[in-house]
């Protein structure tokens, strides 16, 4: 027990040392007075549920708040929990059973973030699909296959690779999956999420492996436990993960802008 405590503390330190992020995003902002004052647009305290917005709606925030849109394409081995990661980030708590995803599923999550001194509303489009159903589309709808496959990857801002802490082979697949997406013209950012993470218990993927990976690929691994039951509003339990995703997207943009400036 005590061993794992130490190692996870070590992980906490090593993140700061190895990954060079801009730290532009205030991680605990949601708990601040300003964050709390906007919370009701995203979380309904009376029903204890996240607010969900259809395509005709958006959170009724003051117009002074800037909105930025990103498209994130989810990849990962079948069964690791891609759908449940998106579902958890969208605010659904509790295990609803494993069902294979059929077709393409798009989920939009609105997330407010404090960057330096400014509040920015992130509109994150998560595209979730299964390799099987893409193959099936190919088989049954040959004409549209190319279009559909492009539709998923077209103008992608980030590729989110999901693996499971329960399954070492799904973790070993991650570099290969990341490489398979590097051919996309837009040079999408990389996000890596590990699901089924349980603190204080032995996992198939160890913290040492995670550290090595982060060191080698300069990518932070975001840990999620989608089945965790929570006593406080669920939104606080995934704010860290969502903030990290936004940070990755933001840094990619900043890098892009700075390169443009240099070229000029």
């Amino acid at each position: 027990m005590s061993l794992s405590t130490e190692s996870s503390l070590f992980v906490g330190n090593s993140i700061l040392l190895t990954i060079n992020m801009s730290n532009a995003i205030s991680m605990n902002w949601l708990n601040s007075t300003e964050g709390e004052s906007l919370l009701h647009h995203f979380y309904n305290r009376s029903t204890n549920k996240r607010r969900f917005y259809g395509i005709l709606e958006r959170p009724p925030l003051p117009s002074s708040i800037e909105e930025v849109t990103y498209k994130i394409f989810i990849i990962g081995r079948s069964g690791v929990g891609k759908t449940s990661v998106v579902s958890r980030l969208a605010g659904n708590v509790g295990y609803s059973g494993y069902f294979e995803t059929n077709g393409i599923k798009k989920t939009t999550i609105y997330w407010p973030v404090k960057i330096w001194d400014k509040v920015v509303l992130f509109k994150l489009h998560f595209w979730d699909t299964s390799e099987n159903s893409i193959k099936k589309y190919n088989h049954i709808l040959p004409v549209s296959f190319v279009i559909l496959h492009q539709a998923c990857k077209d103008k992608v801002d980030a590729v989110c690779t999901v693996f499971s802490f329960d399954d070492a082979s799904s973790f070993n697949d991650v570099p290969q999956l990341m490489n398979s997406m590097s051919a996309i013209a837009e040079k999408p950012g990389n996000i890596v999420i590990g699901t089924k993470y349980r603190a204080w218990s032995s996992l198939a993927v160890t913290d040492t492996q995670v550290n090595e990976f982060e060191e080698k690929w300069k990518v932070k691994i975001i840990r999620i436990d989608t089945h965790k039951s929570v006593t406080r509003p669920e939104i606080f339990d995934c704010s860290y993960q969502l903030n990290w995703i936004c940070e990755t997207l933001w840094d990619r943009d900043q890098e892009f802008i700075s390169k443009q400036v240099v070229q000029v």
């Binding site: 395509i55 659904n92 059929n102 077709g103 599923k105 798009k106 989920t107 589309y137 049954i140």
Partner: peptide
């Protein structure tokens, strides 16, 4: 669960 858009064969 609720999702924004779906496309299935």
């Amino acid at each position: 669960d609720s999702c924004t858009a779906r496309d299935l064969p």
